[in-house]
């Protein structure tokens, strides 16, 4: 088990390294290939009509005139070991993990990421609970009553669910349930949990449900397909033949096997979502990581975009790792196989 975990950890580190390469390529390499010179790139990192002196300073800070390998090395080592920025009178230490420094607001990106994480976390966790419960139970029920009216209605709704853009369902729910019937607060009103748990939940109901609707639809489809596959397997027949009650067969044997792939996908989805449910947060104007990135794009604050992107990637890698380990714990065969 230890060896397995160690191996997965090593794989996770490799994955992280690849992710840094891709992020680096997008933020530093591709623009250069597209014909932007180092001055132009520096200007993009400052935003808002920079002076030549500011460009020179940023160029030096980001090593934009160095060879590409040096730039990459500095980029990665900055993340891992921290960076230093000149405030004019002092050296600002951006401690590891240093997710960059916004030249536009003269602030480190990391604390700002942390500040927005609770919002995105609240959104993701609440929605995940809803969609897992709803999606999986609907999927299981549909599979068990295949062909029934319930199955058909559920699957049709699910298909509609995956076909609806979240920013549309969000707007419709705001129009109906916040504006026309003012049951829920309008977009942009987030209350911190510690401040008032009731207001926190009240304000998040619409985003939760909107987001969960899409994922519940996806998970219901997946669960149903998975259940149909496993319920036809030999070991289920064996279990039935042994005379086990149908309930035990379904929950203990069928569901367990059908859920394993769902867990993998859930890990990925949840990890991605912790990096910001960009569309949901934009639609409901929730001050989370995704909205932070969108605002930064609009305000030409590139270091922030870079920071959020890296942050998200890290979450995905961690989520992957957790899932891998959970997996091995649930299913001993995996340890041997991998």
């Amino acid at each position: 088990m230890i060896r397995y975990i160690f191996r997965r950890l090593a794989a996770g580190v490799v994955l992280l390294l690849v992710v840094t390469m891709v992020v680096f390529a997008i933020f530093f390499l591709v623009p250069r290939l597209a014909g932007i010179d180092s001055d132009g790139l520096a200007a993009r990192y400052i935003g808002k009509s920079p002076s030549p002196e500011a460009i020179a300073a940023v160029k030096e800070r980001l090593n934009l005139d160095e060879p590409i390998t040096v730039q990459y090395w500095e980029f990665v080592s900055g993340l891992v070991m921290g960076q230093e920025y000149d405030s004019g009178t002092d050296i600002i230490h951006c401690d590891a993990p240093c997710f960059g420094y916004s030249f536009k607001t003269n602030t480190e990106v990391w604390p700002q990421l942390l500040e927005r994480l609770p919002v995105t976390g609240s959104l993701a966790i609440g929605a995940a609970v809803i969609w897992l419960v709803a999606g999986v139970s609907i999927g299981v029920l549909s599979a068990l009553r295949r062909g029934s009216l319930l199955d058909r209605a559920a699957m049709m709704t699910a298909l509609a669910g995956v076909s609806l853009p979240i920013f549309f369902t969000g707007l419709v729910s705001l129009a109906l349930l916040s504006y026309y019937w003012p049951i829920f607060p309008p977009g942009g009103s987030y209350t911190d949990f510690t401040e008032n748990p009731l207001a926190w939940a009240h304000g998040l109901v619409l985003p939760w449900v909107t987001l969960a609707f899409l994922y519940a639809a996806m998970y219901a489809r997946l669960t149903r397909a998975g259940m149909l596959d496993t319920m036809g397997e030999d070991f289920i027949r064996t279990a039935r033949a042994k005379g086990l009650p149908e309930r035990t067969v379904v929950t203990k044997h069928g569901l367990r096997a059908a859920l394993t792939p769902i867990i993998t996908i859930f890990g990925l989805d949840f990890g991605l979502m912790l990096g910001g449910a960009v569309l949901t947060e934009s639609t409901f104007s929730l001050p989370g990581l995704g909205k932070f990135a969108v605002d930064a794009i609009r305000g030409s604050d590139l270091p922030v975009v870079l920071g959020v992107t890296m942050f998200t990637a890290v979450f995905v890698v961690i989520a992957n790792l957790v899932v891998d380990v959970l997996y091995a714990w649930v299913d001993p065969r995996v340890r041997v196989g991998a």
């Binding site: 623009p31 969108v294 794009i297 975009v305």
Partner: peptide, 8 residues
């Protein structure tokens, strides 16, 4: 979003 942001 980032790519569209950095490209000329």
């Amino acid at each position: 979003m980032a790519l569209v942001g950095v490209l000329p």
